[in-house]
Design a binder for these strands. Structure first.
Lengths: 208, 208
DNA sequence: ATTCCAGTGGTACACTTGTGCTAATATAAT
DNA sequence: ATTATATTAGCACAAGTGTACCACTGGAAT
């Protein structure tokens, strides 16, 4: 008998449960495991399930069919809400530590929006970004960035003006053109030395 | 029978399943639902589960105990994208059949946004709603409604003008005041006979 | 040897569960 | 009123299911 090391059948059972969960999104029964692991007695399965539970690797409710749960979690992208952004304030740029340590809240967003990228969220205060069609109370999802491509919606820090605005970014010869998303309003032109890109706006979320 | 609006028992069953999942991490049986919703026949539960499955809100494997799975992953709701909305077009109002049958796409959004409510999504085409801070290409999440409270952002159909706009709704004596979200722009006043509420705007989603 | 124990096999019981069937009721449309 | 459709009700059956029980194997410690 192997005192050190893991029981082979028990590991096969455990991995089978994982596999079964991936394929069905619900737990297998004792007899599902029996067939899946080519065992010949429900008692064997029962025995190993009891051990696995005692080891804390699974949970079960007595007498409830398909009640096996793994000490495991589904992966949804959670995004830290790092603070608020208002007119005249620089946007806080997150570091590895601030990422979750000083998060006010963890927001859960679909992967569709993040596309796997590491984003952070900011709550917009005031109407200073209304020309970017961003309202008071909206949430913006930011992607950390120092540079931008033409057409990107970026958060820029204007050194002389000492303020942050959200604009679409275009290079035009020697200057930089910053266009509001709202086409009714006029673009502004700046020298590259005066603009500092703080991040790309990846999405806007408005809850009414 | 109510053709518009959702079956009450069916919604109770659906929310019970969600609640049960939150509490147990596995699906309820038909009889769990029966007891939890204080119904008196498994056939009633079976009937509504069949409808829910036809509507695409749940999935089941035949003859498998506790095989109910929600179309919504935990923390994420799926919302049918029913079409586009542009100036001069009425907003399509969904019925039970159109819910998933004619959905162009199923969008996944955080449950934080839907708050459990049954919403549908529309893609905005053109700039007709820019005074509501809604851009071309934005997605609006609509909640079906015929009435509105003061301050609600609603989609209204103006009969005389034959067009839909998104505005904030206020009653002012005999008339109805419709305010653009953009405070730079002027509100319009209408007689109640001319406005027909098509739904509440529950959220705005902009992907850049 | 003997004892101990993790692990395996086989089986049976009592209960649970999805489903099918029939009937009844309620509301809407004609 | 009549028809159609949605919903509720009661019940029975076959199969699925967790669990208890007993017997057995093989290696390790004594």
């Amino acid at each position: 008998m192997r005192r050190s090391g893991l029981s082979k059948t028990r590991e096969r059972i455990y991995t089978f449960i994982r596999k079964f969960y991936r394929e069905h999104d619900y737990a297998p029964t004792v007899r599902d495991i029996l067939r899946g692991c080519r065992l010949s007695s429900t008692a064997v399965v029962q025995y190993h399930l009891n051990v696995l539970e005692k080891e804390g690797r699974i949970h079960r409710d007595p007498e409830v069919f398909r009640s096996i749960r793994l000490a495991d979690k589904p992966g949804i992208s959670s995004v830290p809400l790092l603070g608020t952004v208002a007119a005249g304030e620089p946007i806080p740029v997150p570091t590895a530590e601030t990422w979750t340590s000083q998060a006010l809240e963890i927001m859960e967003v679909p992967e569709e929006i993040t596309e796997g990228k590491q984003l952070y969220a900011l709550k917009v205060k005031g109407f200073s970004m209304i020309d970017a069609l961003i309202d008071d109370g909206d949430t913006v999802l930011m992607e950390p960035a120092n540079t931008a491509e033409d057409g990107d919606m970026v958060a820029v820090w204007l050194k002389n003006e000492q303020e942050v605005t959200l604009k679409r970014f275009y290079r035009e010869g020697e200057t930089v053109c910053l266009r509001p998303a709202n086409k009714l309003m006029e673009p502004i032109y700046q020298y590259p030395e005066n603009v500092e890109i703080q991040g790309k706006v990846s999405a806007v979320l408005r809850k009414l």
